[in-house]
Design a protein around this nucleic acid. Structure first.
Lengths: 200, 200
DNA sequence: TGCAACCGAATGAACGTTCGATTGATGAAT
DNA sequence: ATTCATCAATCGAACGTTCATTCGGTTGCA
């Protein structure tokens, strides 16, 4: 796919937007190319002009959404934030992003649990991806002895796992979204993550 | 579906087993009835004799797997366990179950992120399901002031979210499965969950 | 004039489901 | 003891639909 065209062309944007929208409601395989064409007002032939196959379209959509997420979660980190402030800010952004972009959350949930993801894992894991920025951030906390002295991937799993599970619960009505609840959750993951030898 | 027949008939068991197996590799929609019939050595017509549709088959498989999970995670809880022991034991069982039954984990991930789940949510949420046993167990910890005084669903989201995220990471090789890592993870979620006013 | 962008009817494969036929076990009737 | 009727269990070819993809053609810019 030609990235320049994808960005400059409204048709491509419309196709991606429609695909995202339709997948939330109808799922991966309940979203035929014909409906994408119809919803986006772009002819099937034109879609195939830009995306060699439906898989390529899904893949491009994934990369597009991942970029949005990565740009979002590290946004607004001030230089004068101490580590804990950043820890909280990033986590909050993470949850906020998914709540504000429910269609992306749905898409990611489906994408990551599909065998499609498993097949393309190698290509998906970027050397400088957003997930890795989270890894780097948490590793910094470990190195500075602020966080527990454990394998960073355990902290990543906890940090992200709680966020995803929270969004899922909110989406499916187990959980009410309120400022109090978000603060309580942050209390839970912060207390879990910090190095209790060094902090209160 | 007739439960008595499902349990007594080897064909039904074979169909469910094949479906589970094929879904892990090929996914929900990459598993046609024809392949299930072929793999399980049961004729398509016979499958439709027991399951009115493919959706019903998937649904029955879901209920079957959920029963297996629920039976597993609360197994081995001794009466002389104190609350923390039980908290850890159940969490450990949760992770162990999914690691030992990777095909069920795959199936659940796909099932819960599919629009299919969203459609049937009402029917899926049992009054006395296993997820609710976890809710009850964590609520007990709140009532006894052992856990944080927060909405129980926040603790459920954390408890389960970390477990799922952990299994996912192990499955996709970010994380090595070792006793040390499991102990560190338990440290993280326990520290996160406990009421720090009352505990050390 | 050339070439990329664009179009959508047509194609062929794959899928969920149906249905008419066959088997075999059960038990009532003779 | 034998026959027969019944019906659930079994089977898989066939049906109709849906879908991803193709392709021959048109448009419009450079």
């Amino acid at each position: 796919m030609n990235v320049r065209l994808m960005n400059s062309n409204e048709k491509i944007a419309a196709v991606l937007a429609s695909t995202l929208k339709l997948i939330q409601t109808n799922g991966f395989h309940g979203t035929p190319m014909s409906k994408i064409a119809q919803d986006s007002d772009v002819a099937i032939g034109t879609i195939y002009h830009y995306f060699p196959s439906k898989d390529d379209l899904i893949f491009a959509l994934f990369k597009h959404c991942r970029t949005l997420l990565n740009d979002y979660i590290f946004d607004g980190i001030k230089d004068d934030f101490d580590y804990k402030d950043s820890f909280i800010h990033i986590w909050r952004n993470f949850v906020k992003f998914y709540l504000e972009n429910g269609h992306i959350f749905s898409f990611f949930e489906q994408f990551f649990s599909s065998p499609y993801y498993e097949k393309n894992k190698a290509e998906i894991q970027e050397p400088v991806g957003g997930q890795n920025k989270v890894v780097d951030f948490l590793q910094e906390g470990i190195d500075r002895k602020i966080l527990k002295q454990v394998d960073v991937h355990l902290l990543v799993a906890s940090y992200i796992g709680v966020a995803l599970s929270t969004v899922h619960s909110i989406k499916f009505k187990d959980l009410k979204f309120s400022e109090q609840n978000v603060e309580d959750l942050i209390g839970i993951i912060w207390d879990g993550a910090i190095n209790r030898e060094k902090n209160n």
